[in-house]
Each structure stands twice: as C-alpha cells, then as structure tokens.
Amino acid sequence: MVEKTIHIQNSMGLHARPAARFVKIASKYPCHIEITKDDLTVDGKSILGVMSLAAEKGSVVTIRADGDKEQEAVESLIILLNEIYDEEEIQK
C-alpha cells in the first residue's frame, strides 16, 4: 500500500472539474484507490465520491492506493494536483 498526504492549493479545491480529471486518471489504474479528508474516506475512482469530499483550498487530503501499480498511481495523481495548481498560477 502506498500513501501520500498533500495540501490542496488550487483555488477551486478538488471539486468541479478537477474532480473529474482526478477520477479519469485514477480509473486508469487497476489498484484500489481511496482518498481521505478528515475522517471521510471515498473511492478515488468515483466522481461523486470525490466531489462529496468537498476538499477546498487549504484542506489536507491523503491519497491511498493498494494493488497493482500503486506507486505509479499515487505519483501521477499528485502530479495532476500540482499541474492543476500550476495552470492556475500561469493564468494569474
């Protein structure tokens, strides 16, 4: 099992479009992926799950993957979150 904790930095948090992008990437991996904020854990491959987390800017979330390609999955999801943040920065 691989686990990584990250600070959500982009202004829209992890709902709306970023959630859709997150789920799209997560769904590409065979392993089980979940994401936790406070004491709520949801399926990282479920768009409604991720949206219902309501992870806003500044919240701390933990991404956990278990199974095939778990390392790669967590890494690419972290990269995605950073990318979303960078895109916003560029637009500013």
Binding site: A20, V23, K24, V42, D43, K45, S46, I47, L48, G49
Partner: peptide
C-alpha cells in the same frame, strides 16, 4: 457527455 458517462458508471453509486 463525459460527465454523464462518468456519473452513470460511477462505482460508488453502483456499489
């Protein structure tokens, strides 16, 4: 359309 499909196939809802 994509969003429709994602919600339709959402594992959380199905489970």
């Amino acid at each position: 359309f994509d969003a429709h499909m994602m919600i339709l196939e959402d594992s959380q809802i199905i489970d």
